[in-house]
Amino acid sequence: MVPTPGDVETLSACQPESSPLLLLRQAAVEAVEADCLLAGEDPTWQCSPAGKAVGSWEGWWTYDGVSGVDHWGVLNPNWKICKCGRKQSPINFEPDRLLFDTHLRFVHVDKHEISGTLNNTGHDVTFFADQRSSSPLMVSGGPLSYQYRFERFHLHFGTVKHQRSGFENATGSEHRVDGQQFPAEIQLLCYSSLYDSFEKAVHQPNGVVGIAILIQMGDEPNRGLRIITDAVTRTTYKDDSTPLESISLHLLLPQTEQFLTYEGSLTTPPCYETVTWIVFNKPIYMNRQQLHMLKRLRKSTAVEKLGNNFRPPQPLHHRVVRTNIDFRRKVGKGCPSMKREMGYKASKWLGA
């Protein structure tokens, strides 16, 4: 059997690590050990990827530098799919490549409030839902065949001015639309009701659904987002956390039933390709005050800002991106709508 060019590309990307890659990984190990020693910690036990604390190694990745996105597939053998996978996320949505699917239903997210913990992970702001709750929040509809239980959400955002527009925080989202990046993005991750935990579901095909909500700057901020940004003032540094009681994720959803969907992956290591992504076709808004609250967040030191925590768009590799937006129906000045236009119209010969 003769491999196709795509097969050759994948095979070459997944070959065993060559000497330069091994040297890169060794350099990363030495760098993190040096950081631990400067902090007065024992790198063998707490910080070193070569040491005994496996959990520490799995958390030791960044968005830039020697442990940045370009090297995720090299740092850990279990993350190789971050480099050679062909269903990676996020992606750039190209309007002329969208496929209208009449069978897509509306997405349903339960409206009841939930509680959990908001954390500064050193990578992003993450909310973990209380999984002991007797009333878990469920997601269904859209492209999904089963119900999915909400596990957590991640907040990605930027901290620098856009060189062309000059707007603060003009870059920060992971998904892009026609090349346009948004100031921030919140991602709700849920796991299939077929499994009893996120850890089990993430290894299974279609085991996880990710709901991406793009965030734009505006004077009237989203109510749900306001609750989150008020709470982040209590999570300034890495490993800081605060309880978040009675939050309704339904408040985070934009006022639209239109969305895009595709098969992809986690956007952070280990990059498992088991995620069905749903991206709403309308942003929510935050104001400058909320932006400044996010810009106060730090990593492990008082100097390093937490933001700019987004992975660049990944190749689509012939994947199909479906949508429930019917571009054949127009309302107003070319705005697509799914609203049905119904009425009566007389034939031309009537009354002639």
Rank of each mutant, 00 (worst) to 15 (best):
Q258L: 14
F259A: 02
F259M: 11
L260I: 13
T261A: 15
Y262I: 14
Y262A: 13
Y262R: 12
Y262G: 13
Y262E: 12
E263G: 04
E263I: 08
E263Y: 12
L266H: 13
L266P: 13
L266R: 15
T267W: 00
T267H: 04
T268S: 06
T268C: 01
T268R: 01
T268M: 05
P269F: 03
P269V: 07
P269Y: 00
P270S: 10
P270N: 09
Y272V: 02
Y272F: 15
Y272W: 10
E273V: 03
T274A: 12
T274R: 09
V275N: 02
T276N: 04
W277S: 15
W277G: 15
W277N: 13
W277D: 11
W277V: 14
W277C: 14
I278P: 04
V279D: 01
V279N: 02
V279A: 10
F280N: 08
N281R: 05
N281T: 07
N281W: 01
K282P: 00
K282C: 03
K282Y: 02
K282H: 04
P283Q: 11
P283A: 07
P283M: 10
I284P: 07
I284M: 09
I284W: 05
Y285V: 08
Y285N: 11
M286H: 13
M286T: 08
M286C: 14
N287K: 02
R288C: 04
Q289K: 14
Q290D: 15
Q290P: 07
Q290T: 12
Q290R: 07
L291F: 12
H292M: 09
H292S: 10
M293F: 12
M293I: 10
M293V: 12
M293T: 11
L294S: 06
K295D: 12
R296F: 06
R296L: 05
K299I: 11
K299E: 09
A302Q: 12
A302S: 15
A302N: 11
V303W: 07
K305V: 05
K305S: 06
K305C: 08
N308V: 10
N309Q: 07
N309A: 03
R311V: 02
P312R: 01
P312S: 03
P313C: 05
P313E: 00
